[in-house]
Amino acid sequence: MEDLVRLVYASEATFSGNSAAQGIELEVGRILSESRRNNARAQVGGVLYYGNGYFFQCLEGERDAVVQTYQRICTDPRHKNAKILLKGFTKRRLFQDWSMKYLPAEKNLRDFLAQHGLSEFSPFGYDREMVGRLLIFFQQTKESGELAEHSTEHSPAATSTPTKPGWRRLFNR
């Protein structure tokens, strides 16, 4: 696919969410349901994380389909202040088999953030390198199956683990 792109954005939720201990927030569940249906038709995939009142989402697919999906997201009243954190062409998808995967990675994410000197999930302040590291974290979480028992969608087994270290494999460097 010549125009395969990856777009990562953050936005703020316009609703008050419940705690992770209570399960998936009702509005997030609705977003996931709609996303999976729409994204499967458009052949767009990716991952969604919701925490601390923020959405962090990676969309992957054909350029026009990803742009249309992002434009639809920007008009969704459940989001506000959408900001693109990363965009560009890519040679392969990180989340190939996911129309839209939701990872409830609360404990694991807190540990990951602490390793990077961060005390809370606040994606608007992340630079390109941190966004890349977060994507790798989500991909490795997916591949390891660590959160499979908490997941709302079954994920097929990973095909192969990329050999390039860290965030560089995200950008094919």
Rank of each mutant, 00 (worst) to 15 (best):
L147Q: 08
R41T: 05
K164D: 15
H154N: 06
I31E: 03
L134W: 08
L59D: 02
Y50D: 10
L109G: 03
G117T: 09
G51L: 10
I136C: 02
K142Y: 08
R30F: 13
F171S: 03
R128M: 11
D76K: 07
D127Y: 05
G45V: 00
R133V: 05
M130I: 01
P156R: 15
D97W: 02
R168P: 01
S151A: 13
E27C: 13
R168A: 03
A20H: 11
R30D: 10
V131Q: 03
G17A: 14
F55A: 03
G17D: 01
T141C: 01
S19D: 01
K87G: 02
Y49V: 00
V131D: 00
N18I: 09
S99W: 13
S122Q: 13
A148G: 06
N39K: 09
R63V: 14
Q115F: 07
E153C: 07
G29F: 04
V5C: 03
L26G: 04
R93I: 00
G45L: 00
P162N: 09
K164N: 13
L32R: 09
T69N: 04
L7R: 01
L7Q: 07
L4I: 00
L4T: 00
E27I: 10
G125V: 06
Q22G: 01
E120V: 03
V67P: 02
R78N: 14
E143N: 11
V47E: 11
L94E: 06
A157T: 13
P104H: 04
L170F: 11
T159C: 13
L85E: 09
A105S: 11
A158T: 11
E106K: 15
E27K: 12
Y70I: 12
H154W: 13
T159S: 14
R128S: 14
Q96V: 10
G17R: 15
R63T: 15
A157G: 10
S144W: 10
S144R: 02
E34I: 05
R168M: 08
D127F: 08
F137N: 01
E34H: 05
Q140M: 12
L170H: 05
F112M: 04
G88W: 12
N39T: 05
E27T: 15
